[in-house]
């Protein structure tokens, strides 16, 4: 298990050196999107229209934060369960997305897309929303404000702690970790 500090946008070279189980401290700009926003982004791609942010090298964080208290950039902001984005992620990866941050299992299609187009799936600690918010320095809604917590936000992050779950080689930390500790009778 290695530790890396990386700044977005991520390159093919950045993500290729990561392996399932590595810890990465991410800094720079990342974008938030959940189910509803993913659907809209994919619709734009299919229509050949411009997206609200540049997908190339991007990292998308699956999160619907609580409203910020006055004077704070964001409320609590831990990851949501990722499988709900499984049908959209391969299309975004094909168009240049390099990283996803969420929690929980991904489909084989997402893992295949990570391998084929060089992208990684990072896990953040679910239910650690107050702690994770500390790594978020700025937040700005850049699209779909009407979706409320599901709007697309541009976040400036500093040393956002994530763990590589699915790497570019087809490894899956959930399967590896469980195989190591499973007790079969």
């Amino acid at each position: 298990m290695a530790e890396y500090h990386m700044t977005t946008p991520l390159s093919d070279e950045d993500v290729s050196k990561l392996e399932a189980g590595d810890i990465v401290y991410l800094s720079g700009t990342i974008y938030t999107a959940r189910d509803a926003a993913h659907k809209r982004l994919v619709d734009l791609i299919e229509k050949g229209e411009e997206l609200p942010f540049d997908l190339k090298g991007s990292v998308i964080y699956f999160v619907g934060p609580t409203p910020p208290k006055p004077g704070e950039p964001i409320g609590s902001a831990g990851p949501t369960t990722s499988y709900r984005m499984d049908s959209y992620s391969p299309i975004l990866i094909k168009h240049g997305q390099k990283g996803m941050i969420g929690k929980g299992k991904r489909s084989q299609e997402v893992k295949d897309a990570c391998k084929e187009h060089k992208a990684v799936y990072f896990g953040a600690t679910g239910g650690a929303g107050a702690l994770i918010a500390k790594a978020i320095k700025k937040a700005k809604v850049i699209a779909y404000e009407e979706l409320g917590p599901e709007a697309v936000r541009e976040l400036e992050v500093e040393n956002f702690p994530v763990t590589v779950i699915n790497d570019t080689k087809g490894n899956d930390l959930y399967e590896m970790g469980r195989a190591k500790y499973e007790v079969k009778d």
């Binding site: 619907g64 934060p65 609580t66 409320g75 609590s76 902001a77 831990g78 239910g127 929303g129 107050a130």
Partner: peptide, 8 residues
Amino acid sequence: DRPLCQDT
């Protein structure tokens, strides 16, 4: 006094 999780 922050929410423990964003899913309140």
